[in-house]
Amino acid sequence: MRSDHTGRRQIRVAIVDDDAGVRVGLRRLCEVFELGVSVYASGHEFLASLDHGCPHADCLLIDAHMPTMTGVELQHDLLSRGVQIPTIVFTGDDPDAVSAHHTGLSVVACLRKPVESDDLIAAIERAVGAVVSDPDGPR
């Protein structure tokens, strides 16, 4: 984790979603909370970004349904590469059913789309084990 101007380490998240609108929206939301954000249109793009097997993020936000590589496939791929990264999965379906697919993988939370900012931040905090600061005061 990089340090920000306050001296605290900046939490970095990677967003993988095939929908450009969703990517932009989530990036903006995360940026409000002064998180470092990188976006990827597909699982393959994210895998390509790995630096010697290390992700440039502390937390991974992925869409469960993606055309070329689904969320589960991406996680299995990461697992096989030995990459351990706490992951938050978004889904339009029943989150409980989706999280069952991800059993045994490093899934921290399964969130139903559309995502409330509070739920998202709470999940990220759980994933990275750190408090996300709200520049605008208490949530």
């Binding site: 929908d19 609108g21 969703v22 932009v24 929206g25 989530l26 903006r28 939301l29 940026e31 409000v32 978004f90 339009g92 789309k113 559309p114 995502v115 409330e116 900012s117």
Partner: peptide
């Protein structure tokens, strides 16, 4: 859900 997700995130931001 895709546009709705985008809308909610954008609106909250």
């Amino acid at each position: 859900n895709q546009p709705l997700t985008a809308i909610l995130s954008n609106a909250q931001a």
